[in-house]
Design a protein around this nucleic acid. Sequence first.
RNA 1: GGAGGGAUGGCAGAGCGGUCGAAUGCGGCGGUCUUGAAAACCGUUGUCUCGGGCAACCGGGACCGGGGGUUCGAAUCCCUCUCCCUCCGCCA
Length: 426
Amino acid sequence: MLAIQLIREKTDWVKQRLAVKHFDHPEWIDEILQLDAQRRQLITEQDQLQNLRNAASREIGMLLRTGQHQQAETQKKEVIQLNTQIDELEKQRQQIEQQLEHLLLQIPNLPHESVPIGKSADDNVVVRQGGKIPTLPDNALPHWDLSVQYDLIHLDLGTKLTGSGFPVFKNQGARLERALIQYFLDFNTRAGYIEYLPPLLVNEHTAFGTGQLPDKEGQMYFISDDQLYLVPTAEVPLTNIYRDTILSPEQLPIKLTAYTPCFRREAGSYGKDVRGLNRVHQFDKVEIVQLVHPDHSYEVLEEMVVHVENLLKTLELPYRIVKLCGADMSFTSALTYDFEVYSAAQQRWLEVSSVSNFETFQTQRMKIRFREGKQTRLLHSLNGSSLALPRIVAALLENYQQPNGIHLPQVLHPYFGADKISPPAD
RNA sequence: GGAGGGAUGGCAGAGCGGUCGAAUGCGGCGGUCUUGAAAACCGUUGUCUCGGGCAACCGGGACCGGGGGUUCGAAUCCCUCUCCCUCCGCCA
């Protein structure tokens, strides 16, 4: 959520920035300003009347104590008059505020100055590329075939147990998943991130805090009996840990990491994009989150990008880093880098991480602040995947397939307990 | 699931329906003392918001778990929701 003062003070600049995100209702900004002016006017009037009421009530107390009941009664009648006026103003104010909030919630975050102008994902800018794209043997298979051949992942079984998009990992497949999670968490904690294991169900306050509500309501699974949402990413519970807190400068930066399964309804997805592990309803992901001083958040963003990049390098996968253009960014982000890994058998780039700076867009909602002198100030929040597992697994299987098995990168050997995935014994 | 108790400032802990934004203690910050530190003493110490100076500040309003009600007036009374504690039951 944008700060109303920002809209007030830099109206034209806000509109100009929103245009980069292809936000096509600049008139809402004007409506917001109008409502804001009305709101402040009403508050001023109401406060004045309440001031009068407080004084009068105090006087009534005095009158009663000194036995002047007559005067007290006339005073009471006046205050009752006042109260009807106050109630009227209060009703108006609430209505205005509701409209204001409704509009404000539909304004996306402003893109950073460096965000590329663009109309679609085609206009994203490749920042760096690394690793080597392997040449595969002639009979190379995509990961969904390898999964079956090596008895690693069973999508049809998931369909039987739950529905489509809920993969079942088995044997070496399950072990690989566990190894990756463990490795990623170790990599993050070594870099100073504090490990958490948060709840997988969150309430609506929490979902609202990071911006999942109301914007992406349909994307989350909802437990209606208890009014709880299944987490679509660890970002949600992790960032909300610090909701409604005022930190001291010495506590900064806050660096958090967590593994959680992620649940996404992905309504409306179809076709080859969803084949195999490319898009599923439940997947594993390790997330990193930082809450930092607003003056340094873009340095921290670069630091997080390098962190994820280093992790990817150790997996020895061909990758590239993409800076998202205005049209492709999320509602809440000010600047986002996507990480993609090359899936050699599918011959396409798959997104495995998204690292973003949200500036104060989330912290404004969550009221995450720090003390700066006598003032309080909003922190900046950032997060990124490090990493999302399914497409990493897909790329590992496809890129490393050899006639005698799937050779794993060295860093995984101790976690996996072997240097390769062996063909099933049969 | 059943019965009872509770939710107050960073923490602990008071609070007859009317100068209560809230006693007191601890902690924090500033100062005196000291070569320095500790102790002692003095002072200070919440958040949000509106208005004015458009800055260090000043004035108003709101906030004692959330929401609603009674009243001229509510931290204090009533209703409701949430959470916490104790006991019983059930259970990984």
